[in-house]
Nucleic acid binder design. Structure first.
Lengths: 184, 184
DNA sequence: ATATATAGTGAACCATAGCTCATGTTGAGT
DNA sequence: ACTCAACATGAGCTATGGTTCACTATATAT
C-alpha cells in the first residue's frame, strides 16, 4: 500500500495551505507559514516536499492542470464549430483573471514557454495550435500568427500589481495584434 | 563647498559599480558586491546611500534620464514633421533593447506608470502624448489609443529571460495593437 | 496486544544579505 | 605643520528563511 492515512491527510492540508499562501503572496510565502497554515510542523512539510522548489512545482502543476481544462474546453468548442477568435479571447481573459487572483499562475504560464515538463508542454502547444490554425482558416487571425506568439503574449500578461481594468485593456490590445480586425 | 575630493571620487565609483552590477543581476546584486566592485568598503557605500533602496533609486533615475533622452529625441523628430508611428516604433525598439541589456530598465519603465517622481512622470506622459496625438492625427494610430496604453505595454515588455528575437517579435505584435495597419 | 516501519515534531542550524558602529585615516582650511 | 571635521574601514550585528535531525508518536500488519 501507499501512504499512511494521517500522512495522506497532512499532504492534502499542506497542498491546500500552499495553494492559498502562494496565491496570495507568491513565492514569498515562507515554508514556516505554509506549515502553520496547514496545521503541521515544518519537518512534516519537508517529509512530503524535500525542498521548497518541489512544493512550488507541485502547486504550479496544479495551476497547469487548471489551464489545461480551460484550453481543452476551448479546443472542444472550436472542434464543435465555435469561432476560434472567440475561444482565443476567452482563453486570454481567463488567464488575465487567473493572474489577477493567483500569483502562482504567472509561473505556470512561464512554464508553457520554457520546457519544464516536455510532455505537458507538447499537449498545451498542440491544443493551442488547433485553435490558432482554426482562427487562421477563418481568416480571423493574421496569417503569420504562431503558437509561440500566443505563448509569448500570455507569459507577459501584467501581474496583479496592475489594476484589473488595465489588465483587461492589455488583453484587448494584445488580441488586436493577433487578429485581422481593423480600427473602428 | 560640497563634497570632499575623495568622497566625490568614491561616489562616482559606487555609481559606476552599481550601474554595472544592477544591469547584470538586477536588484539581486548585493551591497557587499557593489562595494567590492567599487573598490570601497560597505560602510562607505552606506555613507553615500543610507539604504539599498536609495542606491537603486539613484540608478533607476539614471535609466529614466536615458529614457527621457530617447523620448525627447522622438518628440523633436515628430515636431519636425517625422512620422509619429515610426518614432513610436523606435521608442519601443529602444526600450526592448534596453530591457535586454540592463535589468534596471524594467524598474525605470515601471516608474513611468506608478508615480514615484510626479514631476518627471508628467514630463514623460506629456512627451508621449505629443507623439500619440500626432499618430492619431496621421491616422496611423487607432483613435482610441491612449498614453496609458503605451505605458502599459512598455511596462510589460519581456524581461531578458526572453531571447532577443522573441522580444523583437513581441514589440511587433504590441505595435499592431496600437496601429491601424491591416494584415498583409 | 505488540512490534515496528512510517510519520510527525520543533528547536536549532546555517547561509544570505541588509545594515551598524567603534576605530582609524585624510583632505583642506589656517 | 597642525587641526579637526569629514570620511573610510570592515568585523560583526540582526533578521529572514530554507533546511536538518534527534527524538517522539502512531497507523497498521501480525
Amino acid at each position: 500500500m501507499g501512504l499512511r492515512a494521517d500522512a495522506a491527510r497532512n499532504r492534502a492540508n499542506i497542498l491546500r495551505a500552499a495553494r492559498t499562501l502562494i496565491a496570495a503572496r507568491g513565492e514569498r510565502a515562507g515554508m514556516d507559514d505554509i506549515a502553520r497554515e496547514a496545521g503541521v510542523a515544518v519537518g512534516t512539510l519537508y517529509r512530503h516536499f524535500p525542498t521548497k522548489a518541489d512544493l512550488v512545482a507541485a502547486i504550479v502543476e496544479e495551476m497547469s492542470a487548471r489551464m489545461f481544462e480551460a484550453l481543452d474546453a476551448a479546443v472542444a468548442r472550436v472542434d464543435a464549430g465555435g469561432a476560434a477568435v472567440t475561444e482565443l479571447t476567452t482563453l486570454f481573459e481567463w488567464a488575465a483573471d487567473a493572474v489577477g487572483q493567483d500569483r502562482g499562475v504567472k509561473a505556470a504560464l512561464r512554464n508553457l514557454g520554457m520546457a519544464d515538463r516536455p510532455d505537458l508542454e507538447k499537449r498545451a502547444l498542440a491544443g493551442l495550435s488547433r485553435v490558432i490554425e482554426a482562427g487562421r482558416a477563418e481568416g480571423a487571425l493574421r496569417p503569420d500568427v504562431t503558437v509561440g506568439d500566443v505563448v509569448l503574449l500570455m507569459s507577459t500578461l501584467p501581474d496583479d500589481d496592475v489594476p484589473e481594468p488595465a489588465r483587461r485593456r492589455w488583453v484587448e490590445l494584445a488580441l488586436r495584434g493577433l487578429t485581422t480586425g481593423t480600427a473602428p
